Amino acid sequence: MASSGVSAADRLRRAAESRKLVRIKRSPRNADRVNGFVVAVGSKWALIADTGDGGFFEGLVAIRVKDVVKVKNDSSFEERFARTRPEWPPTAPADLDLDTTAGLLRGMSAISPLLAIEQERRFHSRMTWIGVLYEVTRRWLWLREVRPDATWRKRPLGYKLRRITKVSVSDRYLTALAAIAGTAPTH
Rank of each mutant, 00 (worst) to 15 (best):
101 T>K: 05
113 P>W: 01
128 T>S: 04
113 P>F: 06
130 I>N: 04
101 T>C: 00
70 K>I: 05
176 A>Y: 11
27 S>M: 13
85 R>W: 05
47 L>I: 10
78 E>K: 11
83 R>D: 03
3 S>Q: 12
94 A>S: 08
8 A>P: 09
182 G>S: 09
181 A>K: 13
28 P>F: 06
3 S>T: 13
67 D>S: 13
81 F>E: 07
73 N>S: 14
72 K>A: 15
137 T>W: 01
98 L>Q: 03
69 V>F: 05
46 A>E: 00
107 G>I: 03
42 G>M: 03
111 I>Y: 00
40 A>I: 06
40 A>L: 00
30 N>L: 13
162 R>K: 14
45 W>M: 05
88 W>M: 04
96 L>M: 07
10 D>A: 15
36 G>C: 10
119 Q>G: 06
163 R>M: 10
63 I>K: 02
173 Y>G: 02
52 G>S: 14
152 W>Q: 02
117 I>P: 01
160 K>D: 00
27 S>Q: 13
8 A>Y: 05
112 S>T: 07
180 I>D: 05
154 K>Q: 13
8 A>V: 03
92 A>F: 01
158 G>W: 05
63 I>V: 15
73 N>F: 09
50 D>T: 15
41 V>A: 02
89 P>D: 08
148 P>Q: 12
110 A>P: 01
31 A>K: 04
6 V>C: 09
153 R>Q: 09
6 V>M: 10
14 R>N: 14
98 L>K: 08
24 I>F: 04
108 M>G: 03
159 Y>H: 15
24 I>T: 08
186 T>L: 11
14 R>V: 12
103 G>L: 04
45 W>P: 00
56 F>S: 15
61 V>M: 03
45 W>H: 05
75 S>F: 14
8 A>H: 03
164 I>K: 00
136 V>L: 02
40 A>W: 03
165 T>H: 07
85 R>S: 14
68 V>I: 08
83 R>F: 06
25 K>R: 14
77 F>T: 07
2 A>M: 07
110 A>F: 04
111 I>R: 10
69 V>K: 09
18 S>T: 09
138 R>P: 00
95 D>G: 10
107 G>N: 03
53 D>P: 08
45 W>C: 09
34 V>L: 06
128 T>P: 00
26 R>F: 09
15 A>K: 04
44 K>N: 11
153 R>A: 11
1 M>D: 12
151 T>K: 11
2 A>I: 12
136 V>N: 03
87 E>Y: 07
117 I>D: 08
86 P>K: 13
159 Y>C: 04
53 D>R: 12
78 E>R: 13
52 G>K: 13
101 T>E: 06
152 W>I: 11
46 A>M: 00
55 G>L: 12
3 S>H: 14
74 D>L: 12
132 V>M: 03
9 A>I: 06
90 P>Y: 03
73 N>G: 11
118 E>I: 01
40 A>C: 07
151 T>W: 07
27 S>V: 15
153 R>M: 06
38 V>S: 03
152 W>L: 06
153 R>T: 07
102 A>D: 10
95 D>E: 08
124 H>C: 01
77 F>L: 08
185 P>A: 11
151 T>F: 04
